[in-house]
Nucleic acid binder design. Structure first.
Length: 423
RNA sequence: GGCAGGUUGCCCGAGUGGCCAAAGGGAGCGGACUGUAAAUCCGUCGGCUUAGCCUACGAAGGUUCGAAUCCUUCACCUGCCA
């Protein structure tokens, strides 16, 4: 199966320029070089970024050479989006983020001396010292404002709050990137999320206009769940991040374990490298024995390994089975419990401190405020060692302590935390 | 530059002097049911030292016993005119 057929089957192709032309290039004698850019709009990439990033890797495994581009320049400008004008971050911040994101990008493609060895680029390298006159003469002249005004996002913004010249110019910068990589490395395919379609095609056009070359565009779909919600938002609404400091491996694993039945097959195809037969088997399992959650478990395991490595994965699986298992928490050994607690937020207290259930819930960060903690208790959503606590004034006693002096706190069904109690 | 309209809680949106921590919807959160799923139903949804107090209706002042609501100035947005 060719790489394009593979992507097609996985549901990874949203839009492409002439597919047959691209297919010919992929099958031709000359190796294809492709790129995908990631703007540092935050300190870390999030789960949604994984789709184009892993697609880059799929191309690499199929014999193409990938370039990962950190948008040190474009990240300072900001792509226009529907929600309105962005607030600019300081240059120092963007530079710092670009460095961190570059480090993350490097983990998902292979760097070696082979022909498929990946390259890393930063568009600040060719824009940082570029004069505005050069830019306007060499690049700007090839863009028609009439056409730019017709872009969907621009139209929506003009109909709404308007947009700045800065964001309006974004297209030109990204188009220039494609041209630059085409010239430097013969890069002839750019991929990205479907929201990047206009920017990618803009670059392909520029390459044709200036250098008379042919370049392709391919976008991956914007992933939403069966509810139409944007993928990668945690239950609280925040992004789930690749950075383990921002989203712990445990939280990352749990996110995928909780994917709904309706989405698990789609996600397995989009996010994992499992072969087709295996995915179809898992989909069949999900349909026939949904309560076993084999699809979800496998999805979570694959993705945690991919992002955090096999050791972290083994730990979070062990912790999950200890905390969600059918067994009694009281029967767990101190070592097992301590290992599990390492995966969830923990707070310290002592029996003398007189911390109430409300204090403990707030202390572990399971709830945001004391008011919310009281509410949780009142609503019957607060548990200690799997037992419901319905008194706001409840304080732990020596009898409550599990092996190793632990208390397992839970809010709702699946939000867990640990309390380490000093004698 | 002129005229008109607008800026409300996470989002949308009602509210034109006290009954407003602010209707309604969405999202979120909790419970029931389940399978750490979906759907459904019920509850909840600013903070705190919680019968009270503090913060909040673009910003700063003012009027008033009392302002999200009235007045003044400023900022931003939208529309029409120049």
């Amino acid at each position: 199966m060719s790489i394009l057929d593979e992507l097609e089957w996985r549901g990874l192709i949203a839009q492409t320029t002439d597919l047959d032309a691209l297919r010919k290039d992929l099958e031709g004698p000359e190796q294809l070089t492709l790129y995908c850019g990631f703007d540092p709009t935050a300190a870390s990439l999030h789960a949604g970024h994984l789709i184009p990033l892993l697609t880059l890797r799929r191309f690499q495994e199929a014999g193409a050479r990938p370039i990962v581009l950190a948008g040190g320049a474009t990240g300072q400008i900001g792509d226009p989006r529907d929600v309105g004008e962005r607030s600019l971050h300081s240059v120092e911040t963007v530079t710092e983020w670009a460095t961190r994101i570059r480090g993350q990008l490097e983990r998902f493609v292979t760097f070696d001396d082979s022909p498929t060895g990946a390259l890393v680029a930063n568009n600040l390298d060719w824009t940082g010292n570029q004069s505005v006159l050069t830019f306007l003469r060499d690049i700007g002249k090839h863009f028609s404002v009439n056409v730019m005004l017709g872009r969907e996002t621009v139209k929506r913004r003009l109909a709404g709050d308007g947009l700045s010249y800065t964001e309006f110019s974004y297209l030109l910068l990204q188009s220039q990137d494609y041209l630059e990589l085409y010239r430097r490395y013969g890069c002839r395919l750019q991929i990205g999320g479907s929201d990047q379609w206009g920017n990618i095609v803009g670059g392909a056009d520029l390459i044709r206009r200036i250098d008379g070359g042919t370049a392709h565009a391919l976008t991956t779909p914007l992933v939403t769940d069966s509810e139409g919600r944007k993928f990668g938002k945690s239950t609280g609404g925040g992004n789930i991040w690749l950075d383990p400091e921002l989203t712990s491996p445990y939280a990352w694993y749990q996110y995928f374990v909780n994917v709904s039945d309706a989405d698990v097959g789609t996600y397995l195809r989009l996010f994992t490298f499992l072969p087709r037969e295996e995915i179809e088997e898992l989909e069949k399992e999900t349909a026939e024995r949904p309560h076993l959650r084999l699809g979800q478990r496998r999805l979570a395991e694959e993705l945690t390994t991919l992002v955090h490595g096999p050791d972290a994965t083994a730990q979070v699986i062990a912790a999950s089975s200890a905390l969600f298992g059918r067994g009694e928490l009281g029967e767990l050994e101190a070592a097992t419990l301590t290992a599990a607690m390492a995966e969830v937020p923990v707070t310290d207290t002592s029996l003398d401190a007189g911390s109430t259930i409300v204090d403990l819930l707030v202390g572990t960060g399971l709830v945001e405020s004391k008011g919310a903690a009281r509410r949780a208790v009142k609503e019957g959503g607060a548990y200690v060692n799997n037992g419901k606590v319905d008194d706001e004034e409840w304080t732990p006693s020596a009898d409550d302590l599990l092996a190793g002096g632990w208390l397992v706190l839970r809010r709702g069904k699946r939000n867990l935390a640990g309390v380490r109690v000093a004698g």
